[in-house]
């Protein structure tokens, strides 16, 4: 990633710049539509590109991890391939949704244990997520901690 500052406002701290990523450029300041579960709700990708002119969208790790799950996303070749969005994507760590959506959770030094808001199943998020080969991740977390 590369960031280039292009202009600075004299009367405030505002600045204009360009971020370059593997999936293209983002002109800043920028707003990123939130595509929670791999979709910006109620909006087609072609509307995002042509009408809204979004340059980057968000995905939420918590939602994507629970549904469709990492096995599907990895088989698809990543979220870009899965949802057909060819421009940059940013994902959060999943922490925020664990804290705001799940009722049963334990925060420890190791990480956060929580129950899915969908089916009550138990999961663990850690900074590393996970402890082995990425391909083992899904199985590990779906067959008990």
């Amino acid at each position: 990633m590369k960031f280039t500052l292009q202009a600075k406002d004299k009367l405030s701290k505002a600045r204009a710049g360009v971020i370059e990523t593997a999936h293209g450029k983002i002109e800043t300041p920028i707003f990123m539509p939130v595509g929670t579960a791999g979709t910006v709700k109620a909006v087609h990708q072609h509307e995002l590109v042509n009408d809204i002119q979004a340059q980057i969208i968000l995905g939420n790790t918590y939602h994507l991890y629970l549904r469709p799950g990492l096995e599907v996303l990895q088989k698809a070749g990543g979220l870009h391939k899965f949802n057909g969005w060819e421009r940059p994507i940013l994902t959060d760590s999943g922490g925020y949704q664990v804290y705001s959506l799940t009722e049963v959770r334990k925060i420890k030094e190791e990480g956060v244990t929580f129950r899915s808001h969908i089916d009550g199943s138990k999961h663990l998020f850690t900074p590393e997520n996970d402890h082995g080969h990425p391909a083992n991740h899904w199985r590990r977390h779906h067959h008990g901690l």
Binding site: H23, T61, L64, I89, L90
Partner: peptide, 9 residues
């Protein structure tokens, strides 16, 4: 997990 999802940032 975020490596698997594959976002740019």
């Amino acid at each position: 997990t975020q490596r698997i999802i594959g976002a740019d940032i």
